[in-house]
């Protein structure tokens, strides 16, 4: 049976729309299921107390604090390094061989499986540098993992600043460094910020890189130094859902909700910043 081109087109577009909606399905399911089952677990006590009775009762404070410490550490490592690398790629390096090799390295770094970052962190930071399983080791491992995210997005942000800004600045007698600082960076800032937030969100949610570098199974106290082990939200959720029998579903869902809320809020912030600056882009 033959259809006219117009009918074929209708059918095809319908199928494509259906496929797109299927892709959205898991976001809806995840958010709905977690909100429905987890909202009841959220209370002031849940967020601010230590876990008790083998994590079957009490709160998740040390996991929240641990994740916060890890993310901050990862950011302190990856942001300056990533921003500098992006500045090099976009402002200093021409299209030379070094630039191309760096680009390939970044592509590959971005593709390394997260558990392999975990092995790397274990071998380099935990064992070779003797930092032990610690916040320092975990932060550095996560920092290495989000480095390509920060470099790539910062580079895109820098390269989207019109070439003419640089030419104008130099023509007015500014040095190269002054040009980057005053005529390029301020205009790339929203993009850099967006990329950084996305990187942070990714670091907050990752489990595999921290498995062997920092994560403590059950440690009902807050970390006091960089060399302490720590609990972390994603690992805590993993432990609760697969390693500890007879945990009330509410506690699992509550933990998942806190983790999801942190990560999605960061992403929504990034999306909001981007669309705000895109709408009032000035050139």
């Amino acid at each position: 049976m033959m259809f006219t081109p117009r009918v074929t087109q209708k059918i095809a577009f319908g199928v494509l729309l259906a496929a797109s909606l299927v892709v959205l399905l898991p976001v809806g399911v995840v958010v709905f299921v977690i909100l429905k089952n987890g909202l009841g677990a959220i209370s002031w006590e849940f967020l601010t107390e230590m876990p008790r009775s083998g994590m079957r009762e009490g709160g998740i404070l040390p996991a929240i604090v641990g994740t916060f410490c890890l993310v901050t550490g990862a950011l302190l490592f990856a942001l300056p390094l990533g921003l500098f690398a992006a500045i090099y790629l976009s402002e200093y390096a021409g299209d030379n061989r070094l630039n191309r090799v760096i680009r390939l390295a970044i592509v590959n770094l971005a593709g390394v499986p997260s558990v392999v970052f975990g092995l790397f962190g274990l071998a380099l930071f935990v064992n070779f540098f003797r930092f032990g399983a610690s916040i320092l080791s975990g932060s550095l491992t996560l920092g290495v993992m989000i480095l390509p995210v920060i470099i790539t997005s910062s580079r895109e942000a820098l390269e989207s600043v019109p070439k003419s800004f640089r030419e104008v600045s130099l023509s007015l007698g500014a040095t190269r460094l002054q040009t980057i600082k005053h005529a390029v960076l301020p205009h790339a800032l929203p993009g850099i910020l967006t990329g950084t937030i996305l990187g942070v969100g990714r670091a907050a949610g990752e489990t595999a890189p921290i498995l062997f570098t920092v994560a403590a199974f059950y440690l009902p106290k807050l970390p006091t130094s960089l060399f302490d082990q720590a609990m972390a939200l994603p690992y805590h959720l993993y432990v609760l859902s697969t390693q500890v029998p007879n945990v009330e579903a509410k506690i699992r869902y509550g933990t998942a909700l806190v983790l999801l809320a942190i990560v999605l809020l960061m992403n929504l912030t990034a999306i909001a910043i981007r669309s705000y600056f895109r709408s009032r882009k000035k050139w």
């Binding site: 892709v23 898991p26 976001v27 995840v30 977690i34 489990t207 595999a208 994603p234 983790l259 999801l260």
Partner: peptide
């Protein structure tokens, strides 16, 4: 983009 952001441990859990 949000789907990409959901931590893998959360997707595993769900």
């Amino acid at each position: 983009e949000l789907l990409a952001a959901i931590p893998s441990v959360v997707l595993g859990f769900i």
